[in-house]
Amino acid sequence: MIPKAFAYERAHSVAEAVDLLQQAGGAAKLLAGGHSLLPLMKLRLSAPAKLIDISRLDELRGVSVVGERLFVGALTTHHQVATHPLVCQHLPVLAEAAAQIGDPQVRNRGTVGGNLAHADAASDLPAVALALEAQLHVQSPAGDEVFAAEDFFLGPLVTALPEYGVLRAVSFALPPSGARSCYSKFPHPASGYAVVGVAAVVAVGARGTVEFARVAVTGAADVPYRARAVEAVLLGQPPQPEVLRAAAGHAADDGAIAGDAFASEAYRRHLCAVMTERALRRACGLADAAAGA
């Protein structure tokens, strides 16, 4: 399969990429790792007149901790995220999710920024971005803008990224010390995308009750969402199996759960509860529940 012909230009800075996007007037797309865009172009589902290659911009690469946030440059690959010492130390749930994207070859090319800007409704990273209260740092003709992850994902393949904007980096909030986390995914057997994927971050306080809970779900709805109903049940409760199960029962409450050819709405609702319970149990250091749970 061959993409439709397009013009190609390499940007030498983010500012130049913004200019080139503007000059193309909406007919251009940015090319980073190309692992979301090129498959669509090969299927001719996307046919931009021009690709602006930003993949050589070193200013968009790298991982760092600044204050209470961990920054990941947009061009950082999934493999780099999954293996980076700072990510493994501070945000193991991010490394855990990145290691489940696609396969090793895909993780060698696919980038964090490309993944989030593409906004596939079944992608793994958006769940982690929501659970870690990520901010997306964008450069556009209007200047620098920051979007909360919760305001960024608007629908399948639709984001709040402004026209002619370049996603520079994403930063994740470091959870309170002592918090534990888990990304639990039920992958589609052929594509590997999440039929349902759940990211959970839980901190238990000195009194033995949950003091901090962030839960987010991908794959189940037309857009990934924060499962606030789950969080509300957990807060102030001891992390006992029955509490976690009761909380997980609300995992579908905050999303517009959708059925498709792969999984019915009812099945996805069921999976939301099962995968959320698994994520919560692992985040709370409990063994997996018996089969059927």
Binding site: H35, L38, S55, H79, Q105, R109
Partner: peptide, 19 residues
């Protein structure tokens, strides 16, 4: 279609020659 590009395994059906 896997080849090594700069030492990393990649799927060459999803990489442009210009990349």
């Amino acid at each position: 279609c896997t080849v090594l590009l700069d030492g990393q395994a990649v799927k060459s059906c999803t990489v442009l020659a210009v990349q």
